[in-house]
């Protein structure tokens, strides 16, 4: 008998987050479908980025950080004491708002994660993985003849695609993106959005964005956070034309 595969890759169950005495997230239940793009939207301070960072335990180093509830990745709670953080972060990668490059070559920027996690065996294998990652990140054609150039010479849009290449080189299952286009021009943004569309064939993407139009364009599911509470989650097709909650309606139509 075939076992039906769980459609959800990550399930947050009754998650509350505290920093010191202040509660940033309240009792959030939210599951993420495999190979889909889910957008998290909400005003600044709504808790969406905090929540995103909980998904690969990036908040662990924050002073007085405390999480209640469970975040299940393949049905195992990532907040268990036994969780190997390095391994977790190879499976759940992160692309940040501000595209940053290490002061190294384009090649080394992509190979960095591989070396960090001891994921390569030979130089040839590394070359192949770097090329493949750059191709998947739609950057290969632009950099293939200058892989040894310093990465900082790339444009903002190219740097963000380099960051995505670095992230996918280590073959994660989930890519978290925290406002990946907020510093980019519309053309560079369009390239990233096109890339997200390609990447979801292989990866699950969870995206925090301030642009509701972007969320509507790239995501299949959207979740709206307000003051640390998950107000509404649903299919993006419906979410932006006919949200069910009054607060969502007010937020997406720009009403106070």
């Amino acid at each position: 008998m075939r076992v039906k595969e769980d459609p959800f890759i990550i399930c947050a169950k009754d998650v509350s987050v505290f920093i010191g005495k202040s509660q940033l997230i309240q009792n959030v239940h939210l599951s993420f479908l495999k190979n889909k793009v889910t957008a998290l939207i909400g005003a600044s301070g709504s808790g969406k980025s905090t929540f995103l960072r909980c998904l690969n335990r990036l908040n662990d180093d924050v002073d007085d950080f405390k999480l209640e509830g469970e975040i299940l990745f393949h049905e195992k709670n990532i907040y268990d004491n036994q969780t190997d953080l390095v391994s977790l972060r190879t499976k759940i990668g992160m692309v940040f708002q501000k595209p940053t490059a290490f002061p190294k070559s384009i090649y080394e920027n992509v190979a960095y994660g591989l070396r960090l996690h001891n994921l390569t065996k030979s130089g040839k294998e590394c070359d192949e993985i770097v090329e493949n990652a750059l191709m998947r990140a739609s950057l290969w054609e632009e950099v293939k003849d200058r892989l040894d150039d310093e990465a900082y010479r790339l444009s903002g849009g190219q740097l963000q695609r380099l960051a995505i290449a670095r992230s996918i080189a280590i073959e994660p299952e989930v890519i978290l993106m925290d406002e990946p286009c907020s510093a980019l021009d519309p053309i560079a943004t369009a390239r990233i959005e096109e890339l997200i569309d390609d990447l979801k064939q292989k990866f699950t993407i969870i995206l925090v964005t301030h642009s509701m139009q972007q969320a509507a364009r790239v995501s299949e599911r959207t979740a709206f956070f307000n003051k640390g509470i998950l107000i509404e989650e649903g299919a993006s097709n419906e979410f932006f034309t006919n949200p069910q909650n009054e607060l969502t309606q007010r937020y997406i139509t720009g009403r106070g």
Binding site: F240, N242, P243
Partner: peptide, 9 residues
């Protein structure tokens, strides 16, 4: 305005 929700409708 790139309207959404009820404004879009």
């Amino acid at each position: 305005r790139q309207p959404l929700g009820e404004d879009l409708r």
